[in-house]
Deep mutational scan, measured.
Amino acid sequence: MGFKLLSKLLVYLTASIMAIASPLAFSVDSSGEYPTVSEIPVGEVRLYQIADGVWSHIATQSFDGAVYPSNGLIVRDGDELLLIDTAWGAKNTAALLAEIEKQIGLPVTRAVSTHFHDDRVGGVDVLRAAGVATYASPSTRRLAEVEGNEIPTHSLEGLSSSGDAVRFGPVELFYPGAAHSTDNLIVYVPSASVLYGGCAIYELSRTSAGNVADADLAEWPTSIERIQQHYPEAQFVIPGHGLPGGLDLLKHTTNVVKAHTNRSVVE
């Protein structure tokens, strides 16, 4: 069995187990497998329904001669939608809004960016022009300005110390501490036991640490421990890039980060 097929099978099995364990909360999309990078042309966006009122959005972007996937989250909030992270750029984010209108038909009224990198804030200006209120932590807003990236308009308070959590509509926002970046936030959907790890969490097929220019490698494993301790009931975990899975993604990420750190020390 090929690795790609095995990865998709694991996603399907995880979703099936969740649907059985929580039949009222989960209505997993039966329309197909989780979209992969090879299936999404740059400039297009796919939506994948995880649970009743919960979707991931998947886009792709060219970077350094390669094409990478990027995940975000959409959560229903009454007759409105909360968006977590842009679709990595203005063109993708405009396509995301169009796809949401086509498939869901509810307005996106608020959006949260989970850290300051372009795959999370690139497209904020498109959201703002569409009347979406954009939010991020003060740290993310400051770092985005320093980096020359787009800056969300509103500040999220109460997320300055490791372990801080605040309720934001249908989700809980959690600051686990520094990891992929010093400002990275985690998003949890309690009604569906869905954990969105953003770039602080890796997919299972990833074996290298990737972009760690703004990471705190020493603190990252401790931050992941905080996530595990705060959300032990999480059933569906979405990484910032690639295929979702279960809580095993947290341990896998820790292993990859520690291996990278150990290699760096040896070198």
Rank of each mutant, 00 (worst) to 15 (best):
H252F: 09
I186S: 11
R206Y: 15
I50F: 15
V256D: 02
S191H: 05
F26Q: 12
S27M: 05
Q61W: 09
A19G: 09
A90L: 10
I40Y: 13
V146G: 11
L13W: 07
S56M: 14
A111L: 15
H180N: 01
V37M: 11
P152L: 04
T109F: 09
L9R: 09
A90C: 09
D52F: 06
T60Q: 05
R110M: 04
L6P: 06
D216Y: 15
V121M: 04
E147R: 09
D125E: 09
G105L: 12
A98S: 09
V124T: 05
R263N: 10
I58N: 06
V54I: 06
L73R: 01
Y135S: 12
H154R: 11
F116C: 03
L156N: 03
T261H: 12
P35K: 14
G65E: 05
A192W: 07
S30C: 10
I151W: 07
R226G: 10
N262R: 08
L97P: 02
K251M: 13
I58D: 02
V146K: 06
T182H: 06
M1N: 03
L143E: 08
G53N: 05
A200K: 03
Q229S: 05
G177L: 01
L96A: 12
V108T: 15
L83R: 01
G43L: 11
S208A: 13
Q61Y: 05
V257C: 10
I58T: 06
D125Y: 08
I100F: 02
F168Q: 04
G89C: 02
N71A: 09
L247P: 05
G148C: 05
K91H: 12
L10D: 11
R263Q: 10
L243G: 13
V28H: 15
L217Y: 04
E225W: 12
A218M: 10
K4Q: 04
D77N: 04
Y12H: 07
I74E: 02
A95Y: 14
P23K: 10
A129K: 14
G72P: 01
D29A: 08
G177Q: 02
A136Q: 02
R120W: 01
H117V: 00
D29N: 13
G169F: 13
T36A: 07
G158I: 15
A98I: 04
G53L: 07
A215E: 12
E99K: 10
P190H: 05
G122S: 06
C199L: 01
Y12C: 13
S205I: 07
A15V: 13
V189L: 10
R141S: 12
W55K: 00
I58V: 06
P244A: 14
G123Y: 02
V194L: 08
E157P: 15
A59W: 02
A218Q: 07
Y12S: 10
H180P: 01
K102W: 15
L247Q: 08
D118A: 09
S137H: 13
Q228R: 10
L106Q: 10
R263S: 07
A215K: 13
A98R: 10
G72M: 00
V45W: 02
F174Y: 13
S191T: 05
A25L: 09
H57K: 01
Y196P: 01
L217D: 04
L247F: 04
H115T: 00
E150R: 04
A111P: 03
Y135C: 02
I40N: 10
S56P: 05
G245C: 02
Y202P: 02
N184A: 02
A90M: 15
L5S: 06
S113H: 15
S139W: 12
H260L: 05
P232T: 10
D125V: 11
D125I: 10
G169M: 03
L96N: 00
A192N: 12
K258V: 13
D214M: 07
P138F: 05
A165Q: 14
P170H: 07
V266L: 14
W220E: 00
S30P: 05
R167E: 05
A87M: 00
P23I: 08
L96D: 01
D77H: 06
T153Q: 12
V75L: 10
G163T: 10
F236E: 07
L81I: 14
Y68F: 05
E172R: 15
D214S: 08
F236Q: 07
D183W: 00
T134P: 04
P107V: 13
E225P: 02
